[in-house]
Design a protein around this nucleic acid. Structure first.
Length: 811
DNA sequence: CTAGGGTTAG
């Protein structure tokens, strides 16, 4: 026999073997198919087949094992199924789903969730989600079920009938309704028999709830509800309200109004539902109109009416209307101030807060006879949002009982106002008090780390977050992007952004801002374009971020185009902040006259930020005439603002106008303006440290940022005012140049860093002997040449008196 | 069936 023939024979034998094995596998699979888990003895039959496989030396492929897992699960033999599951490398989605269902049945939602989480996103399907949602519903965790249900949209999974019924069961848990409204749904649909008003009401409510889910784009569910509604002979109050809110939730206010108008004897709840619809959709004027009609028709306004309208006034800034209503309530409601009206009190607090009257809001709180936890939280939020962090903290401390929301507000309040250490302290206290830490609380703590540029702590929090299973949290993820970026780890920020399972427009904004702050203007711009390609609608902040990225990177053309496309292509009117960035962008590029003509052509009166940008530009590019104009406007707008004096005096000295500079300084002394410019030196331990740098996060600066925190603490110990003017010293080499490309406001304010024009470099000098004023002049002259100087180890400046320095001034 | 408090981006 030739070699070739032998080879052919071997191949045939092999093929036959493969074929045999396949045949055997098929027979096993068929046998297992016969074990119907719904029938008795399915498990023992499956076990027999399984044992046969083992003794005959057949090693089953995944699909057979998966089938076995399925059978064991459905026979309530979870542990055995889990053992198999752990042994085989490829479990399919069916087996996994069975396992989830089995754990659900044995009341182990945590284990079920483990299986769910271990399944890669792309393998999860609707059935698996259904199993997990059902698991939560069965185990009385309605909120988790609904959370999971809501997350389906982000992975583009379409809910089916089972999803709806399980989530309805969950809804029932939360709203404390009939427990089995899901089953009610199906049974009524199938039988079509029961026509009692209450049953049909429930069914309509089921339809409306499903129709309001974010997935359902077709109006057929709502139409079904409407059909049922139209066919009903006896309608009660519930029927009317359900269908009205159904239309409201589906953004069809006109249809809702039509139904509402059809009610002969309108009752309070219907009025309230309609008004609330208008309020929620931002149609405040119509809400007020309806209130007027309600009042005129003699219906008694109740608690819900008041809170609805007050919230409309708060959101629309209709302070006058709100205040009127307040007076009306006090006058006409004898029960006002009683326990039942806590919600009205809370709405009033919100009204005064949102209309900028925080003290008035506080008065309402203090005067109120009854308060609940929401009242406290609202007052704290009010103070936090107005930067009155001390007041917020004292309320926080006074609170008799706090919930997780209270803690979260306080943590992020500290973080937002730049008090990172305090934010972390509260976060730790929250943990010590055993309060469950939600991802919002983590977001606040992470922002605190961003403020402190504490990469180490931030990374730790990230790890804890993953441990707790918050890996898909949007708020925490977005905070992490910013934290990593601000700590200089742009790569970490990027990889997080690209691996987050769900992202929203804030994630995009955060990432674009991160690139901008790192001087990567072009990348920021292209990411912005990518965002548009993903059909994400940019908001006002997006434009602010991307414009400022352009300003930092000197992308004048691009910035200008963006600014114009904002109104032309996106239908947004640029606000004062956008104009300020545009002016800033032009000023940095030295296009001062163009900046001025932008200001002149603005559709509204330019405010302080705009003139300040222009003045800063004039300082950097030595345009005294224009700078003086800008300063005049600033003095008119904000006479008490120290920054104007400082900018002005720096502009004069920068351009060699020494007399004028001296005059401004004299004025400053008279007015008690603090001499320290934002970029001054600070004395620590007998050394003078001057740190001048823009806020670009340069890799070499990362060490500096974490050092700032330590230095700040040391300053406190030494009795220095721990304001924002942190400093740097200890640069390694004596003379070093850092290429810096960008510049922006926020970190400069936080850290007391200085603004620089694009492409600036830093130079470090040692033992430079000049007086303070000359130092400033020197500094700003250098800035004009794109140079910044770091001076260190300078002996006390006031040792240099008249005559010692070439300028003849003394400090 | 209707109302009041939170997070993340600049």
């Amino acid at each position: 026999m030739s070699v070739a023939a032998a080879a052919v024979a071997a191949a045939e034998e092999n093929a036959r073997h493969v074929f045999d094995m396949r045949a055997i596998a098929n027979r096993y699979a068929a046998l297992l198919q016969l074990c119907d888990p719904r029938r008795p003895a399915a498990e023992s039959r499956a076990r027999t087949v399984h044992a046969h496989m083992i003794t005959s030396g057949f090693s089953p492929k995944s699909h057979i094992l998966n089938r076995l897992i399925d059978i064991y699960c459905k026979s309530a033999n979870v542990n055995y199924a889990k053992k198999l599951f752990d042994e085989i490398p490829h479990t399919d989605v069916v087996a996994r789903t069975s396992l989830i269902a089995a754990y659900s049945a044995s009341r182990k939602p945590k284990l079920a969730r483990e299986i769910f989480d271990s399944t890669p996103l792309r393998f999860r399907d609707t059935v698996m989600y259904n199993a997990m949602i059902t698991c939560y519903s069965h185990n009385n965790d309605g909120h988790a079920a609904i959370r999971l249900f809501n997350s389906m949209r982000a992975v583009h999974l379409w809910p089916d009938y089972f999803t709806f019924s399980s989530v309805l069961a969950a809804l029932a848990l939360i709203a404390d309704q009939e427990k089995h409204c899901g089953q009610l749904h199906s049974s009524v649909i199938k039988s079509g028999a029961n026509r009692a008003t209450s049953v049909v009401n429930a069914l309509i409510s089921v339809y409306v709830k499903c129709a309001s889910s974010p997935f359902v784009l077709s109006s057929s569910l709502l139409e079904s509800a409407r059909k049922l509604f139209d066919e009903m002979s006896v309608k009660d109050e519930l029927t009317w309200t359900t269908i009205i809110t159904g239309y409201v939730k589906n953004d069809d206010l006109d249809a809702a109004k039509e139904i509402f108008d059809g009610i002969n004897e309108k009752f309070v709840v219907a009025w309230n539902a309609m008004i609330s619809g208008y309020v929620h959709k931002g149609r405040f004027q119509e809400a007020l109109e309806l209130l007027r009609k309600m009042y005129l028709s003699g219906i008694k306004l109740d608690e819900f009416t008041f809170t609805n309208i007050l919230s409309a006034c708060a959101d629309a800034g209709l302070f006058h209307h709100g205040k009127q209503l307040h007076a009306y309530i006090v006058k006409t409601e004898p029960t006002f101030g009683g326990e039942f009206s806590v919600s009205v009190i809370n709405a009033l607090i919100t009204l005064y807060w949102k209309c900028g009257q925080v003290d008035e809001a506080c008065k309402v709180f203090e005067k109120a006879e009854f308060r609940d936890i929401i009242s406290w939280n609202t007052v704290i939020s009010a103070y936090v949002s107005r930067g009155k962090i001390n007041e917020a903290k004292s309320f926080f401390d006074r609170m008799p009982e706090k919930n997780s929301l209270t803690w979260t507000v306080m943590i992020s309040g500290f973080a937002q106002n730049g008090f990172g250490e305090e934010g972390l302290k509260v976060f730790n206290q929250m943990r010590l008090n055993g309060i469950e830490q939600c991802d919002y609380a983590f977001a606040g703590a992470i922002t605190s780390c961003a403020v402190l540029a504490d990469l180490k702590h931030g990374t730790q929090l990230h790890a804890q977050l993953l441990q707790l299973g918050f890996d898909s949290s949007l708020s925490a993820g977005n905070a992490l992007i910013t934290m990593y970026a601000r700590c200089g780890d742009l790569e970490a920020a990027e990889s997080l952004f690209f691996t987050m399972p769900f992202i929203d427009s804030i994630s995009w904004n955060a990432m674009i801002a991160a690139l901008g702050q790192h001087g990567r203007g072009a990348q920021a711009l292209s990411l912005f374009k990518e965002m548009l390609g993903e059909q994400i609608v940019p908001d006002r902040v997006s434009f602010l971020i991307v414009l400022s990225a352009c300003a930092h990177a000197g992308l004048v053309e691009e910035g200008r185009d963006l600014f114009h496309s904002m109104s032309e292509n996106f239908g947004m009117t640029p606000g004062e902040d956008h104009y300020a960035v545009l002016v800033d962008l032009l000023c940095r590029a030295g296009k001062l006259s163009e900046a001025k003509s932008v200001i002149d052509s603005m559709p509204f009166e330019p405010g302080a930020p705009i003139w300040e940008a222009l003045l800063a530009g004039c300082r950097n590019h030595r345009n005294v005439d224009l700078g003086v104009q800008a300063a005049e406007h600033l003095f008119n707008l904000i006479p008490q603002h120290d920054g104007t004096y400082i900018l002005l005096s720096n502009m004069f000295s920068n351009s060699g106008h020494w007399d004028e500079a001296a005059k401004v300084r004299k004025l400053m002394r008279e007015r008690g303006v603090k001499k320290e410019p934002a970029c001054s030196w600070i004395e620590v331990e007998n050394k003078v440290h001057v740190f001048l740098v823009d806020d670009t996060i340069h890799p070499e600066m990362v060490a500096i940022y974490s050092y700032l925190k330590e230095l700040g603490q040391r300053m406190r110990k030494l009795g220095y005012v721990p304001d924002t003017r942190y400093v740097l010293h200890d640069m390694e080499s004596e003379q070093k140049e850092y290429a810096l490309s960008t510049h922006s406001e926020k970190l400069a304010v936080v850290y007391g860093l200085l603004k620089l024009p694009p492409g600036a470099t830093i130079r470090v000098y040692k033992n430079l002997r000049i007086c303070g004023d000359c130092h400033n002049a020197f500094k700003f002259m250098s800035m004009a040449e794109n140079r910044v100087i770091i001076v260190r180890d300078v002996k006390r400046f006031h040792h240099f008196r008249n005559g010692e320095c070439s300028c003849g001034n003394y400090w």
